[in-house]
């Protein structure tokens, strides 16, 4: 059996003792197949970004990781620094939320897009030619001229395209997108997503799309993982998630999302997210859950499969959420 493109197994990430009461990530397992688009959804502090970054071994300062993160069967957490550089350059790319904070403002766009290729030994002219092609593919007009311009001459949406072009330079098999459209306007978001999904289809890249927006994840992903307080609480197909959410948190999130076509007002989930300073026993969501039983605050629910969905809820079998 050929290994999966990305396979995260039982990933724990914790800060050194005293700096946090609970692990940032607690037994996270997920996988992305070749050419598959996978959503990773959660609110602030859920650990979705940390999970995403761990694929490039970008861990929070002073954090320790256990478990495994394998790209094509190779463990990222244990590989040599040289191999890791190689991986970041050729196999896995990442785009970030705020393009303005992630692109060096003092260097030209051309430098940004070509730096990976140049480091890989490509000649300057070849790299520039390739960069112009990439910029064209993300919908930047007059790409030759754009290469000579500076980041401040671009709008946020245009700069996010530049970042996508830079990420595609190494022809990665896996693209990690950490809230790539959160800082953009809705119409710009649609445009950037159109480019992203188009390119993904053309190149059959795997995509791990991190977002707080369930609707957005469902609109572009095949499968969606839902995270809460460092754990994955539910994994399902995008359609299944909306039709039949299995975890009370997922259904709470769906009910809280304001919808254009529904007159039903959004319903909040009572309480607030678990901070790193709190370490509730049992299910982390129990304190906010309307269906919680005494057992919920005692036992950590194991993830199990029900009708094709993976759920970590003690009462998953008996509850049905609308």
């Amino acid at each position: 059996m050929t290994p999966r493109l990305l396979e995260i197994e039982n990933l724990d990430v914790r800060l050194t003792a005293g700096r946090a009461a609970r692990p940032i990530l607690d037994g996270v397992s997920l996988h992305v197949g070749r050419g598959e688009a996978v959503g990773l959804v959660g609110e602030s502090g859920s650990g979705k970004s940390v999970t995403c970054r761990s694929v490039l071994r970008l861990l929070p300062e002073g954090a320790e990781a256990a478990g495994s993160v394998r790209v094509d069967g190779e463990d990222v957490l244990t590989m040599s620094a040289a191999r890791l550089r190689d991986l970041r350059r050729n196999d896995v790319s990442m785009i970030f939320q705020d393009p303005r904070a992630s692109i060096n403002p003092l260097r030209r766009i051309g430098d940004f897009v070509t730096e990976g290729m140049r480091a890989g030994g490509m000649s300057r002219d070849d790299a520039l030619r390739r960069a112009a092609e990439l910029l064209e593919s993300v919908g930047i007009r007059e790409p030759r001229a754009a290469l000579r311009r500076y980041p401040h001459e671009f709008s946020g949406g245009m700069l996010q395209r530049v970042m996508i072009a830079g990420a595609l330079a190494g022809e990665p098999r896996l693209l990690l997108a950490d809230e790539p459209t959160t800082a953009l306007d809705v119409t710009t978001q649609a445009e950037v997503i159109a480019i992203l999904t188009g390119l993904r289809g053309e190149r059959s890249m795997g995509l791990l799309f991190v977002t707080h927006d369930l609707e957005l994840a469902a609109a572009i992903c095949d499968r969606v993982y839902v995270m809460y307080a460092g754990r994955i609480v539910e994994a399902q197909t995008a359609g299944g998630l909306f039709d039949r959410p299995r975890h009370p948190y997922t259904s709470g999130l769906l009910a809280a999302t304001p919808r254009l076509e529904s007159d039903r007002p959004p319903r909040g989930v009572p309480g607030r997210p678990v901070s790193l300073a709190e370490a509730p026993a049992g299910c982390a969501f129990a304190a906010r859950c309307a269906h919680a039983r005494p057992a919920c605050t005692r036992d950590v629910p194991a993830r199990r499969e029900i009708d094709g969905a993976h759920v970590a809820c003690l009462r998953a079998e008996e509850l049905s959420h609308d």
């Binding site: 809705v186 119409t187 978001q189 649609a190 445009e191 997503i193 159109a194 480019i195 999904t197 188009g198 927006d213 609707e215 957005l216 469902a218 609109a219 572009i220 359609g239 909306f242 919808r259 254009l260 076509e261």
Partner: peptide, 19 residues
């Protein structure tokens, strides 16, 4: 603006063209 709000059946390519 209305079409741009993500939801099931959302078509980002069409929105981009409209924009």
């Amino acid at each position: 603006l209305l079409h741009s709000v993500p939801r099931p059946g959302w078509d980002p390519a069409r929105i981009a063209a409209d924009r």
